[in-house]
Design a protein around this nucleic acid. Structure first.
Lengths: 222, 222
DNA sequence: GTTTCACTTCGATGGCGACCGAAGCGTGAC
DNA sequence: GTCACGCTTCGGTCGCCATCGAAGTGAAAC
């Protein structure tokens, strides 16, 4: 059974405007409640509920009960990655303009659980230029790199024990170049928040760096 | 204008079964006529025509008149890549089984214009292991690599002059690992055909290696 | 206990779009 | 010229599915 992967089915699932808005909202990486997602999708709660049932049925989205709320999140980083790529393609298709959108969004935003936008792309560039990341796929941590991450407060050993790929280039839809995803990308963003170098704009994917945060990141990296 | 990329619109375009079949057929990289695509999509010519109008309107597909035929092809290697990724996600979603499909298809097939399937993934692995391809992204040609490709009859200088990325990892939907795309991936497949190491199964994406071809490729690479 | 809130299920409605066959248009063959 | 062919345009039908409001369920607050 299932001789062929159901490309049309999956794409159709993403292809409804309301569902696409839901998925885009979930790209923030945070789990959201059904009501929040209904707001986001601009449909009635009952309609959103039907959409969410389809998405969870297809294992694109996961649900977790918590008291009388139900929290939804993307099931998987792979899904976030494909969504990001599709968005990128959509952005460049209709006209060749890369799409203005919100400048703050293009500068730094969350891509599921790691840093995207100009800041994210530049970070990966720098890490490679400083030979913190090397190797075939540009995503192996060099011996010197290990020390670098330790200085940042990231325990590489612990990270590499997780099932998730440590380090994964993720195509950035606004920059059309890669930024750093995977467990390491997620850990870095976590540290950036923990160190108060940046904060999240509430209810959005935008990441706002403080002046000191921007400098601190710059100095740590170079 | 166009504050946001139209994710839903693009996905909906792919999300119709007939259009998905058309796009899948075009993943073979060859240009096909409207009638052939109607057959492939299993709809009436008039219906196929409407679909093709939408796809060309969205610049996903390109059309070229030739006498009284009209040939359609994917507009862009980027599009092929996203389709491949979506297919991969679709394959692993419904159940975790990677999907049997045609074994020959999983062994070696065309992905737009380069080699995919077990054979394609193994080729990229070997090239990296032999340090023909090195560097950050695992996709820079090493100095020794240059000689290797010359031996294969590939003119790297000419290739690198093209607008297209020379070397690009492309996620394989059946193997869930990367194979080699980009201008170099395309050139290699071209040589494989030219040297008669393999031939294309007519009207399919399947690539059939001859026993000698299999060996010749192996010997050249190692 | 009752009330309130979060969410889902149900039933009904409406609209969009995929589909087909027939007719039209342009190109090449004869 | 006429015919055959490839494809598109047009008109009309049909079915699916997104949508809603109302009622139902279940959990927490009081």
């Amino acid at each position: 059974m299932r001789g062929e992967p159901d490309l049309a089915g999956l794409a159709a699932l993403i292809g409804d405007p309301a569902r696409a808005r839901i998925l885009t909202a979930l790209m923030s990486g945070t789990a959201l409640t059904a009501t929040e997602l209904a707001l986001e999708a601009r449909v009635a709660p009952s309609t959103a509920s039907a959409h969410l049932a389809k998405l969870t049925g297809a294992r694109i989205v996961e649900m977790e009960k918590q008291g009388r709320h139900r929290y939804f999140r993307l099931a998987d980083a792979d899904i976030a990655e494909v969504l990001e790529e599709l968005t990128g393609l959509a952005a460049q298709l209709p006209r060749k303009r890369p799409g203005p959108a919100d400048p703050a969004l293009r500068h730094a935003r969350v891509c599921y659980d790691h840093l995207a936008g100009e800041r994210g792309v530049r970070l990966l560039d720098t890490l490679r230029a400083r030979n913190v990341l090397t190797g075939r796929d540009g995503c192996s941590v060099s011996p010197g790199g290990e020390a670098f991450f330790a200085r940042l407060g990231i325990d590489l050993d612990a990270l590499s024990k997780s099932r998730r790929t440590l380090c994964r280039p993720c195509l950035d839809w606004s920059e059309r170049r890669h930024h750093l995803g995977g467990a390491l990308g997620a850990a870095i963003l976590e540290r950036i928040f923990a160190l108060r170098w940046a904060r999240r704009e509430p209810d959005s994917r935008i990441v706002v760096f403080s002046r000191e945060g921007e400098r601190a990141l710059y100095e740590t990296v170079t």
